[in-house]
Amino acid sequence: MAAESASGYIQHHLQNLTYGQHPVNGWSFAHTPEEAKEMGFWAFHLDTLGWSVVLGLIFIGIFRAVAVKATSGQPGKLQNFVEVIIEFVDSSVRDTFHGRNPLIAPLALTIFVWIFLMNLMDLVPVDWLPMVAGLIGGEHTYFRVVPTTDPNATIGMALSVFALLIFYSIKVKGIGGFLGELTLHPFHSKNMLVQIILIPINFLLEFVTLIARPVSLALRLFGNMYAGELIFILIAIMFANGLAMGGLGIVLQWAWAVFHILIITLQAFIFMMLTIVYMSMAHEENH
């Protein structure tokens, strides 16, 4: 990578492997960031999707294997490990969510483990997997291995949670109740006329609150992981700049990775916890 400039290196690492409908080339891989941009909405980041699906399958595979053999007797090591996670998620859900909904706990579990695994890819040194991809697909293949540093992934999950939030709000409170919640709070008046004036104000406030949920959910995770990834990339640049810088880079890489273990777990936990809280709000009558 010494031949590339630092900014080129960074840009290369921040470009996804994109396959989409290019206005000129049709459905094809994007060879430059500009091409990827020109593809507009109908393009897929194959690296993001691939890694998230692979990691999701790893999660599902391990947990399903344990679930099949789950015994109430003495658990094996793997079962014990899985049980610790499930117990943790279950107690988090119980503490926060008081309704009855069999979806919430598995939802929280999936979010926690899946996001954790996706974040965990951040600890793989930034050049390893792109280098493998480069060997397979040619030197200029773009390849990002951490799905949660792609805003598409985090927005996708946040929008899914948002959809569930809207769905359960309407299911539990009815469409009227849900709209009432959006328009009759926080300002309320007995006078009809005043109330009518207040409705747009209430709606504005509540709508911003509502929209802020998926946005904050998506951007918090994306921001943290993107920043972490960027710092790993910056540290990786040091390796190309001589022995002293390389040595320092090793130390920094290690230190940042250790700190990052905390961040990736914390971000997965926050995403899970906020999801539970939002679901809990969706199930509560008139807060």
Binding site: G20, A43, L49, N152
Partner: peptide, 8 residues
């Protein structure tokens, strides 16, 4: 782009 649909 459509990645977010796939992710969902």
């Amino acid at each position: 782009n459509a990645t977010l649909i796939g992710q969902s």
